[in-house]
Design a protein around this nucleic acid. Structure first.
Lengths: 168, 168
DNA sequence: TTAAACTTTCAAAAAGTTTTGAAAGTTTAA
DNA sequence: TTAAACTTTCAAAACTTTTTGAAAGTTTAA
């Protein structure tokens, strides 16, 4: 397979994966393109490579920067801005876990906490089912929360070797 | 807070969480409704409770069953079919992990494998960046894959207690 | 058989999301 | 200053996904 074709296939696969996870396909594709580019790319180059408009490129680059997995690079002697992606995929995963925890898990945990004080007869079937489901989910959410905290602090080596042995 | 309002808030929060993870909001809401219902519900009841059409209810129930987290129940003496959700959230999480692995991780791993044999000069900058990124992602994917396999086989107790101590 | 009770399907409509590109805004060099 | 080079914004258009509801299909009881 040609390098060009391989890059295209990778960009396509990464876009599909992103889509499935509620991430704009183009955002995932811009990320993929930067992942396989040895040097930072300009907006122009990204637009040309992926056949997208200036606005689209700009918006998705902004979002990727907000997620903390793409950086603006200023090359000396160049007026243009360039963009590069964090290449260590373990760092990328940690960053995404951190952001999703903040944006999604934490708000849900807040709601779950409020739902604990529901009025009514504790012996009623409906009431019981509700409070039991909520407290079950709360326990799970607390565990997920502290597991993610530990992942964020853990280093790659921990994930790649010791973790796999410990849980064998 | 009234039980009715609490249920509504939970259904709303679960729907939002689902949306963020690429799951149809209505599907997540049907799931939430079944999670807080002590007894199985009929399609009619679900339609009424969530204000959705018959087709919509039917389609999302079918998908939830396909995901393995909702079951059809036949009540004796009743012509109608009823639906109930798996209430143990750890079982739900394992089932979803299993399905997403099959539907998303495995296809990506297949593509990554094919991208290993790319032609060209191994010393070229572009070529090097590409193969390094791909093999980095491959290692990560292999780890994720075998971690999910272990999670699927692990029991709840393992997640709730021993895991947290081990990785301290 | 028949028909009532129920479930599934699917084309069209509605809703939601993404993309475009031109205009407005900003920065820099001269 | 000015104007060229570049970035950002945003309303409208294109596209995608979800939802509807009526029709078709299926099952059951009599």
């Amino acid at each position: 397979m040609e390098l060009k074709e391989a890059k295209e296939q990778f960009i396509h696969a990464w876009g599909t994966l992103g889509s499935n996870w509620g991430i704009n396909k183009t955002m995932a594709q811009v990320h993929a393109l930067l992942l396989v580019s040895p040097d930072p790319l300009s907006a122009e180059e990204i637009m040309a490579e992926l056949n997208i408009s200036r606005g689209n490129a700009n918006m998705n680059l902004r979002d990727l920067i907000e997620w903390g997995i793409v950086n603006k690079i200023h090359k000396s002697g160049e007026r243009k801005e360039f963009f590069s992606a964090e290449k260590d995929i373990w760092e990328v995963a940690k960053q995404i876990a951190k952001e999703r925890k903040k944006r999604e898990l934490e708000p849900v945990m807040k709601v779950l906490n409020q739902l604990q004080n529901v009025e009514g007869d504790v012996n009623e079937k409906d009431h019981k089912a509700f409070t039991e489901t909520i407290s079950n989910i709360q326990k799970f959410a607390n565990n997920a929360d502290s597991t993610i905290d530990k992942l964020i602090k853990a280093d790659e080596n921990w994930f790649l070797s010791s973790f796999m042995k410990l849980i064998r």
